[in-house]
Design a protein around this nucleic acid. Structure first.
Lengths: 290, 290
DNA sequence: CCGGATCGATACCCGGACGGTATCGCTGTT
DNA sequence: AACAGCGATACCGTCCGGGTATCGATCCGG
């Protein structure tokens, strides 16, 4: 199976419309129809049910859509990582680390400093992005290593090392009645009148239905809390980023957030191994301090 | 990047010889040379250093070899899983489960029975293979789910659920002096005169150097032990498979072996989810019994 | 030091695959 | 019933991938 065929199929499967898919692919509709037919013939199975009005996925088509997306991601990753490796002729390509914009600045700075002091350290570029984009960056080869936050992020398909755990706090407008409390429970803050929990985008960029404002990043979220339009449950390290118009109260029964360092399983880059080793050493130190 | 180019490159990178690679690919050498040149031009980086006598990988080439193998595996997996999904027009393709031939027969039988009793269960084919082949089966789409044994098998890149843990025993010829002991330690059995630990193949099929006979599967291993040519450290469940010409003695400080059920992260098959749910339910029951 | 062997690169040719235009046939709509 | 929307089919040109022949460089035996 060629990646071209896969790209074509994924486009049609996502659009469920040959014309639009062809437009998206920058070709015309007839070759696209033929390519899909040929793919079906070679796989020996129907992928799409098409009447002259509608196109729907068959069971096999749904499988190929899921698997094909993953496969295309892997091919793109191979290409990107190879390009990046080729840029530095020294054979020591710089690392790209991706993490949330809202992540603990302290941990990251500590890690980067410690790694930079290692013998054989290479330059590290940092990408900051919204939640649920890190995985994609890692999977598609735009990044070599990520700091993820379990259980918010999924570590599916990556190697991980746990770096630290922290409990969570609820972030409230400074004057809110609950802000005087020493601690609260989840039941105290779900369904607070006028202060719903926000909705985060799904990996595909759409928002689940429900009450609460849509947010893309942590800064937006804090803005909304300050405006009295939402409340937020966040790892306690976010306290460092709060102004005095916001208050944070520990939530006793919120799930513990674990920061992990994650990297793709095929990575043979020594720099990744070095960075992970540095991170796990820091973890030991950090634990003693806490 | 097209899969054809990737296959070509991987072949050359593995053979480090254009002629042999071309032969393996079923084409002649000139188009292969051109294809690699074109790939290098498009990626903007050299992948191979070639004199007219030798071919070696560049740094970027090594990256592309590792990443490209993974990507090709993902494409093959997509194709195989789609084919399999298409075979059963009911939309309920049978599951393929892969495990070691030496795995606990009891656990597997229990799992298959329990799953078969579920509503909506589909037929399950079982593949038994040697160690370190399961991963490949799962990664390349020949199987949907696997029973792996940590730390022998790697769970890199898969979803897993822990199913049970067991300690290990050393398997010895029945008459051996140590076989009378109630338990031993690793130090007692490494370097036993005439009874070395065997060597298992690496994932690429080659054997690490060192003393000890080469073995491919558990049956071979037990045969060698019975012949007095080796000893073996195995999970205690293997006792069920021992004849009276073999003795098993608990090893106090051998690593605990954990049986996990593993499946690829993109799997959206309900049957996989059902099977995993059945397995974790069984685990609960099993724990109570132990 | 020379001639042959080995191996990758180049030159050139051919066939097929891929993409484009025009058109058909079916279906749901007004 | 006429029309519009959509996928399939027919047909054609072009470019790309593969084949054969050959070159140029390097290593090796005598």
């Amino acid at each position: 199976m060629e990646t071209r065929e896969l790209r074509y199929f994924v486009a049609v499967a996502e659009e469920l419309h040959f014309g639009r898919a062809a437009q998206r692919l920058g070709i015309t509709q007839p070759p696209l129809s033929r390519a899909i037919q040929q793919l079906e013939r070679r796989l020996g199975t129907a992928l799409l049910d098409r009447t002259s009005r509608t196109v729907t996925l068959t069971g096999a088509g749904a499988v190929l859509l899921a698997e094909g997306r993953a496969a295309l991601g892997a091919v793109d990753a191979a290409e990107r990582r190879t390009r990046r490796a080729g840029l530095s002729p020294s054979g020591a390509p710089g690392l790209v680390l991706v993490t949330k914009a809202s992540a603990s600045r302290e941990l990251l700075a500590e890690l980067l400093d410690a790694y930079a002091a290692e013998p054989g350290a290479v330059p590290v570029d940092v990408i900051l992005c919204g939640p649920s984009e890190q995985e994609r960056h890692l999977r598609e080869g735009r990044a070599d290593v990520a700091l993820l936050h379990v259980p918010f992020d999924s570590t599916d398909g990556f190697h991980t090392e746990e770096l630290g755990a922290e409990s969570q706090v609820v972030v409230l407008p400074a004057g809110h009645p609950l802000s005087a409390r020493a601690h609260v429970r989840m039941a105290d803050i779900t369904g607070l009148p006028g202060l719903p929990l926000p909705r985060w985008p799904d990996p595909d960029g759409t928002y689940p239905p429900g009450p609460g404002p849509e947010v893309r990043d942590h800064a937006q979220l804090l803005q909304l809390v300050a405006l009295g339009r939402a409340c937020a449950v966040s790892p306690e390290s976010c306290r460092a980023q709060l102004h005095d118009d916001l208050a944070a109260v520990p939530v006793l029964d919120a799930p513990t957030v674990t920061t992990v360092i994650a990297w793709p399983p095929h990575s043979r880059l020594v720099a990744v191994a070095d960075l992970v080793r540095t991170a796990t050493r820091l973890r030991g130190v950090g634990h003693e301090r806490r």
